[in-house]
């Protein structure tokens, strides 16, 4: 199935979790947050939250700004 991770389409097997997708785009252990279809998914729920077809996942961190 296809999901959108940080704006880029990605083919993933059914049952793929938020945790797996986050670790696919960053190796940072902290300072990262994820939103699934515009809802924050707390880090504690990443391993038990599976994504579904056409889901949009945003994975953000702090950068220089302001």
């Amino acid at each position: 199935m296809q999901v959108i991770v940080n704006g880029t389409p990605r083919e993933v097997p059914a049952g793929t979790t938020v945790a797996a997708l986050v670790s696919a785009v960053t190796t940072a252990a902290a300072g990262v947050a994820a939103a699934l279809n515009d809802e924050v998914v707390p880090r504690a729920l990443w391993t038990e939250t599976a994504v579904r077809e056409a889901d949009r996942l945003e994975v953000l961190t702090a950068v220089q700004g302001g």
Partner: peptide
């Protein structure tokens, strides 16, 4: 700081 998509 600003919040942006992670950059691998």
């Amino acid at each position: 700081v600003a919040m942006r998509r992670v950059d691998p």
